[in-house]
């Protein structure tokens, strides 16, 4: 019994241990499955455009940052329940999302979405079976376009569905698909016209965290002004030119 009491005491002490929490540490949430925006590299570390950008923003805003990955589907619920403090996961700023969380100004301009299908096929983009990642602007678009939508938890699975023939085509951000089409060695190709949906990509924060939002806004502004953001985008997106 004595032993049990001791264990209970330790557990209680651990529960109420005061940590010297400096408010300066931010936990940055990302998906880690959307190269080149964010991915987990072979070292097991979060890598990509958003990692490099986020680290620089943290430096300018005076935060220490650690990175955590979370499934796309539950990335907003876990932000509002406090598991991490920001979302940088290639997330477009949409009015629907703004009802739940706040966004900083965009750090990546609106990226048109594209259709990709097996090379040589001519899928019916209006009525065919189109793959898209769950809870994305693309999924919403496909659902309202009249085509049959098949949803997947990650972008990678939408591509696999096109390759296996489960879906006729996939709709996703062009910035993501460029890499995929290039890596497929001619197996996949862009089809149809580009679709212009969604706003730019911004960093998501809790509505109650106006301090983080304001500091990050200032940091993004300074990176836009000194040209370092344009340089980063060119580095990760095949020399793409962006002017602010």
């Amino acid at each position: 019994m004595n032993f049990l009491v001791k264990i209970a005491a330790i557990a209680l002490a651990a529960t109420f241990a005061v940590n010297g929490a400096s408010a300066k540490t931010l936990r940055m949430g990302t998906e880690g499955k959307y190269p080149p925006f964010n991915f987990v590299n072979d070292n097991g570390q979060v890598d990509g455009f958003e990692r490099e950008l986020g680290d620089e923003l943290c430096k300018r805003a005076g935060y220490t940052c650690t990175w955590v990955t979370n499934d796309w589907d539950s990335i907003i619920p876990n932000l509002v329940s406090g598991n991490y403090d920001t979302i940088m996961a290639g997330m477009s700023i949409t009015p629907e999302r703004q009802k739940v969380i706040d966004f900083t100004q965009e750090y990546f301009p609106p990226d048109p979405s594209s259709y990709v299908a097996l090379a040589g096929t001519k899928p019916d983009l209006k009525k065919g079976v189109i793959a898209a990642q769950t809870s994305t602007i693309q999924a919403n678009y496909v659902a309202s376009s009249g085509a049959r939508l098949v949803e997947f938890a990650s972008a990678d699975e939408t591509i696999a569905a096109v390759k296996s023939g489960e879906a006729d085509a996939v709709l996703a951000d062009t910035g993501y698909l460029n890499d995929i089409v290039k890596a497929s060695n001619g197996e996949l190709a862009f089809v149809g016209d580009k679709v212009y949906i969604g706003g730019g990509i911004g960093m998501g924060v809790r509505k109650s965290d106006s301090e983080i939002r304001d500091k990050m806004n200032a940091a993004i502004e300074s990176m836009k002004k000194d040209g370092s953001l344009s340089k980063l985008i060119a580095k990760w997106f095949n020399g793409r030119k962006v002017t602010w």
Partner: peptide, 11 residues
């Protein structure tokens, strides 16, 4: 995570 297709961004 490991089984998913990896583009040239990865080593």
């Amino acid at each position: 995570e490991l089984g998913g297709a990896k583009t040239a961004r990865f080593t």
